[in-house]
Write a protein that binds this DNA or RNA. Sequence first.
DNA 1: CTGAAAGCGCTTACAG
DNA 2: CTGAAAGCGCTTACAG
Lengths: 341, 341
Amino acid sequence: VRSPVTIVDVANRAGVAISSVSAALNGRPGVSQSTRQRILDTAQSIGWVPSVRARSLSSKRAFAVGLVVRRPSEVMESDPFFAAFIGGIGSVLEDSGQALLLQLVSDPKRIVETYRQLALERRVDGVFLADIEGDDPRIPLLTQLQLPTVAIDADPERRSFPTVGQDDSAGNRSLMQHLIGLGHRRIAHVSGSPEFVHSRRRANVWRSAMDAAALPPGSLFVGDFTSAGGARAAAELMTRDERPTAVVCSNDLTAIGFIARAKDLGFRVPHDVSVTGHDDISAGMFTRPHLTTITADPHAIGEAATRILLDMIDGKAVEDVAIAPAELIVRESTAPPAPQL
Amino acid sequence: VRSPVTIVDVANRAGVAISSVSAALNGRPGVSQSTRQRILDTAQSIGWVPSVRARSLSSKRAFAVGLVVRRPSEVMESDPFFAAFIGGIGSVLEDSGQALLLQLVSDPKRIVETYRQLALERRVDGVFLADIEGDDPRIPLLTQLQLPTVAIDADPERRSFPTVGQDDSAGNRSLMQHLIGLGHRRIAHVSGSPEFVHSRRRANVWRSAMDAAALPPGSLFVGDFTSAGGARAAAELMTRDERPTAVVCSNDLTAIGFIARAKDLGFRVPHDVSVTGHDDISAGMFTRPHLTTITADPHAIGEAATRILLDMIDGKAVEDVAIAPAELIVRESTAPPAPQL
DNA sequence: CTGAAAGCGCTTACAG
DNA sequence: CTGAAAGCGCTTACAG
């Protein structure tokens, strides 16, 4: 890049010391209003943009935040959640002078190492902690590193960092009541990847709702948040003797895969089996029948998480943020069970 | 972050000069094999990771590459293309010591400014140039800045940077032949966002194939790569007097939206209207009927583009890369037109 | 309010 | 093969 313009050039051109240029740039006191303006004008006119490298080294800030994503991301590459979350981050970062450093990791075992590297290299001022697992090794690491961290959707009980989450337990309970109210008694669940705490939480809601309604335990199929997983679940669950009359899927993609395969097997949705999703992705509106689902707002989560993270980096006190709770949206993929033969 | 360990500590601990530590770290000549090993061991044992800030400032490299994405990204947030492209970038970057700096921009007018800022701040060593427009202002800017740039899917005729692309013209022509061969004479096109060169290219293939077959010009509906756009297209095109018997959609999302709305309007696919997509996203397999489409490999494009970019940054000579051409995949959403009444 | 100087943690010629 | 020194372009006390 051709831009040998430095702070020295600006200082010379404006006839001041470089410390004055720095003060003017950073809005620090120590320069008169008129001098400040003259410096800024000079900088503008000779096209000076301060070098982030130099600023980072001397100011001990990276002017960047980090997001580490595990990659074998057939999930990531088809799940709109990821892109929307990043969209939320970006919209807050855009006017902050900070940038997003995105690191993809293919081997899950190397995730911790990647976080450590990012911190020790001093590439970022803070990080997002998403897809938290049961006994997540990143938590002690980041605590020890003292790196500003904001957790996404962490478990309320034992959380180590400020957290942004969208409560979906009420929505999930409403969903179960909706299904039970329609008369369903055999309600299966296709879970998400079991290592994530949010997968377990949703499974728990399903289980306890069945309990509370005095229904026999339903079948659990361990899915992976993909349509392919949903299709496998349909192949498995719908060919059993006692097949479910309703299936609660971990996300919309799973539900779409389930419905497609169930149809192929000759079942009608919702006549033969009710199916529900989670996330309310736009694809759910272009599925027939329209998907009964629960809302999610990854964009808002990304925004809130970024605001908190920037505040933490600025040394401000921060509090957890709860996004407006997820809501049940009843559409056409759920109906009363067909009369038993 | 608590890590006051610097190169000086390593040098002291190992009993050598810091220049030797630097040489050992960077694999430069000037240290004996035994000394090199001792230094590396020492660094490891006291947990030293070199500061990227300091390395950047003195070595004049950012150790990062940049991707700028325009954001009003209902598109970005639902189009798997974006995530897969990033996935490809990340998989190459992962073991390179480089990172990806992702910048989102909401106001399209500020895109150029963002590239300029990224370069002048010296945040990145190179950038990706995607979604190229007809008379793209980023091209002269990046040329002037002399910032290593790799273009994605640029126009062959007038390209200013090494380019990675996947040729889909043969696939598109096969698609048109497939449709014409089935007997279709009124073939409409739902285009992508018209500002992108690849949108125009596809429209041209459609138009010239109609011409070549001596068919009357078909209807063009200007879409936007979204399912909602596809639905609007269906509402418009399928309610005309002379409605098309086949519709070529700019991407799978558009096709999915088109099919959904067409069904709502009482049309059967493919009996009443054949519909095709582009990209072969996984959702196309969970649509009924399965989508006839053209493949795309954004992951491979991301990988190749990143390899080229890293080579350019290293000062190596690079050549354009052509990903294996896109192919037609005939599934169930296309069939001969219904007999005219 | 302004300016000279040290320092951030590395890399890179350049002497030994 | 090894080491002392300058320099990358800023920020930050600290004197004037």
